[in-house]
Design a protein around this nucleic acid. Structure first.
Lengths: 186, 186, 186, 186
DNA sequence: AATGAATGAGGGTTCATTCAT
DNA sequence: TATGAATGAACCCTCATTCAT
């Protein structure tokens, strides 16, 4: 693996597990087995890597969730169900529940730094928009765009809030129950 | 105002607005117009003040929300509605939407420090339990305890997730719409 | 026990066990169960208590060793032997061998602060002088004053050096063996 | 001179002259004309530099005293005499008599920190062992190992105690006289 | 004779970043 | 591309002492 990649992977993992502030450049270098020189050759700053990490999350969501699951040629209900599975699966194997990599950063950084907020908002907006399309489809287009948007945001809120509860309780059943409830309300 | 109180108020505000890590002792001293010695006379450490701040949030929720709104002699539906108002009101006048003081700390600290998680979990558990009682009442006790608990957690998730979205979008209408949706689903 | 006395006892113990710099005023207050006000009412500063502690050591040595053992109406050899016993006894029951309360302070403070050195020197000089008298007696006055003084200092050196070795080895047999050797050389 | 070396030299001098606690990192930086970052680039902590300083003393003693003087192909009496000269010479030119760099640390730190004690003990043990060999030789092997060991420790005690007296009296003649006495007793 | 709140300089340490090579 | 030495501001915290009461 190339140095740049190693740095990004390490940063992604560390920031996910400990948060932005608790992750030091030292930590990143140690975890990626690289040196100061390499780090600052590839990235301008700690902020820059973190923004890159967010972009990598965005790409992943785009490929797997937006272009994959949510754009698949399957009924809306099924697509949204698979989205919940996709999220649930990313948590269920963890020994410690670290929360949502995106939600965590929203809370830790979006008020403190506009650049972070802008990027994170971009991701959330796209997500909301994708869900909205499926909700419109689900309702057989008897909902207005606005109504569908509200429902999409409600769904995202329920998901993010559930992961937040998972983080504080460290009890996976909360995620299961809440996601089940979302499914039955579709 | 006494020094200890000034320090706690300043810490509370700063941590709410910037988060735990972005708030330095220096910031707290400047905001509370006190000196280092005084800070450490009243508190053992930065962590200690923050735990004290969380406890003050707990007391406030206990008095205003649990013993006040949720224990009031009014119908369950109304009580839960007032809870949503109480939360909404705490955000609506803000110029910047900083999120939920408790939710923020859950995400920033609960994985990183067990003491914080324990305290925050205590608050969330009590909240959940209080809501559960009202939900049982609402369903005329046709729900099992377990079902009511799930519904309570779903409601908390929806609330916390909505505030998270408010934080990243800085768009108050999301909170309005989502809370409205919770109301209509009661 | 009066506050002043409690403070002095605590200081004496703490400085003996941890040294001057490792002992904080906080430690002293905690160990003596007194408050800041009392401390600074009775003593001008940390240095002042410590000087008082040294003076209390001097008084003790004066009474027990100089006026007691070394002035007793017994043969010189026996007097010097009892001196060694007196010293040995003060160490033998300890669980940790902290060294000589006076020797410790000589090394920690005599270069750093003239006031300390002056006081400690006073004690050492008196000790040396007392031993010298007994050595003169022992040699049936066939030694010059100067020669006796040299022998006295050699004896003090042997004693202090032995206690230093005790401190680093934490092995009491070193003290026994060295003191035995001093005895046989009398 | 390289930064690391400058830091070590400065630390060595300062700790020798003022002791461990009286020497601050600031002092070291000022004396070595380096910056904070540099210090912590080379050393993990203040304790770590001090341990390194002790190790450098050990190496010096090993080379000059143990492998040099005490292992030289000369009679035992002469070797031990040269050892005394070597020690005396290291003090005689000083304007202030700071004591023995090793003895000072034994007294200041060996009870307070096990890591220091272990290292200092290692040095003292080796020293004792080297002297013991020469004493055995001197006695034409009519002494048991144990008896020689006791005599070696007595010699070290006399040396260390003499330097302690030098420190409190600031009178070089004490060192001269005591060392002379050791010589005549060989 | 005693209280405990207030002071602020200084303690050791970590940080993100830059520089010379 | 990459190294690792150098920078210095900022981190949290402890210190001995003073002050008002």
């Amino acid at each position: 693996m190339k140095a740049k990649e190693k740095i990004m992977t390490a940063t992604r993992d560390l920031i996910y597990q400990k948060g932005y502030h608790e992750t030091s450049i030292r930590d990143i270098l140690a975890a990626s087995d690289t040196g100061k020189g390499q780090f600052y050759y590839y990235f301008d700053s700690k902020k820059a890597v973190c923004l890159a990490v967010i972009r990598s999350h965005m790409e992943e969501w785009q490929t797997e969730l937006f272009d994959g699951i949510l754009s698949a040629d399957i009924p809306a209900k099924e697509a949204l169900g698979q989205m919940l599975d996709w999220i649930y699966d990313s948590h269920k194997e963890q020994e410690i529940y670290y929360g949502c990599p995106v939600g965590n950063l929203i809370i830790e950084l979006s008020v403190v730094d506009e650049d972070f907020r802008a990027l994170l908002l971009e991701l959330v907006s796209e997500w909301s928009s994708q869900i909205k399309q499926r909700i419109l489809e689900l309702a057989d287009h008897e909902l207005t765009e606005e109504e569908a948007k509200v429902k999409a945001n409600a769904m995202i809120a329920e998901i993010q809030g559930s992961i937040l509860l998972l983080k504080v309780t460290q009890d996976l059943s909360i995620l299961e129950n809440n996601f089940q409830m979302i499914r039955t309300n579709l």
